[in-house]
């Protein structure tokens, strides 16, 4: 029940003189006023540091002093040929891609399982969400203990089941360390992706699936040609979040391997930390971190496009 505009204005004109006409009665100004503090905070403490991050990448800044000397591209010229940096860039890419692929497969499967009716479904959902809710640093330490070089319960289980005869030094070999890191990322992200996918599934009209059954489509055909395409937008949201969290993560790599063995598992974030904070070379650290930007820009663009589509659809 919305009144015509003139009537509304008329009512306001009668109502307002009863009290003082203040700034608070001008809605657009009130809106700006209420928005301003948060906006100022975000601009001052996200926008400015973000610009500073870019500026530092072109500077010779060190953590001990406050000088700020422009050095042009020399930080980038120093890191780009650096094999350790190339390794970190490559690791960031492959850890993210492999773990997000696994997360997607697991999440879609788990969501299908959870959408079926069975006893204890709520309990299963609750337990599934534990990895996502627990503080990542504490979970990472838990995994460090699971992959321990002497007491690893995984190794014990492999040996006891007779799956292997050799002892795995999880953090002693680059390949094993990579597997360990990806395992932790997958473990942490798949519950979240599952819950998002599940929410998406419940919004797909039942009739579509039923119509496909009537038309004689089998399970796999229904899954790949009906359900999966319909689920795609929602899975994209889950994956975008996963990409951001995984590619920029510092805690898991730092606590599991510290970039070792032989600096083989550094990612951009951990290398930036090592160069910028431990090494004190803020400029070079910032230059390393800047390489995270392309991923974030792509994610932002995809999200904006999806938001616009939602706007049009609404």
């Amino acid at each position: 029940m919305t009144l015509p505009r003139e009537t509304q204005a008329g009512v306001a004109a009668i109502a307002v003189p009863l009290r003082h006409r203040t700034l608070a009665d001008r809605e657009d100004w009130l809106g700006r006023l209420m928005l301003a503090p948060a906006l100022i905070y975000v601009v001052a403490l996200v926008g400015v540091p973000f610009a500073l991050a870019l500026a530092l990448a072109f500077s010779g800044a060190r953590s001990g002093s406050l000088d700020f000397s422009w050095v042009g591209l020399s930080n980038f010229l120093a890191i780009i040929p650096d094999p350790q940096f190339q390794r970190a860039l490559w690791n960031t890419l492959r850890f993210t891609i492999v773990s997000q692929f696994l997360v997607m497969v697991l999440a879609v499967t788990a969501a299908h399982v959870l959408s079926a009716a069975f006893a204890g479904r709520r309990a299963v959902r609750f337990l599934l969400l534990l990895p996502w809710a627990a503080p990542v640093a504490l979970a990472a330490i838990g995994w460090t203990w699971i992959f321990d070089s002497t007491f690893s319960v995984i190794n014990w289980t492999f040996l006891a089941l007779g799956l292997t005869k050799r002892w795995f030094y999880w953090f002693g070999e680059p390949t094993l360390a990579t597997i360990a890191i990806i395992t932790v990322h997958v473990w942490r992200m798949f519950p979240f992706a599952t819950v998002i996918t599940l929410a998406g599934m419940s919004s797909i009209p039942q009739e579509i699936s039923e119509a496909a059954v009537v038309d004689g489509a089998g399970f796999w055909r229904r899954f790949f040609q009906v359900n999966l395409p319909l689920l795609l937008p929602i899975i994209t949201v889950a994956v975008l979040f996963g990409v951001v969290f995984t590619s920029t993560d510092l805690g898991v790599v730092y606590l599991l391997t510290r970039g070792g063995p032989y600096n083989s598992t550094h990612v951009l974030a951990s290398l930036a930390f090592q160069r910028g904070i431990f090494g004190g070379d803020l400029g070079q650290g910032a230059a390393v971190a800047v390489f995270l930007l392309p991923v974030l820009v792509v994610v932002a663009i995809v999200m904006l496009r999806m938001a616009r589509r939602a706007e049009v659809g609404a």
Binding site: A53, A61, I277, L282, A289, L296, M303
Partner: peptide, 13 residues
Amino acid sequence: LIPPTLLFIPFSR
């Protein structure tokens, strides 16, 4: 979505 790992270096300054 701008991650801490991008901002910790300028923030340290």
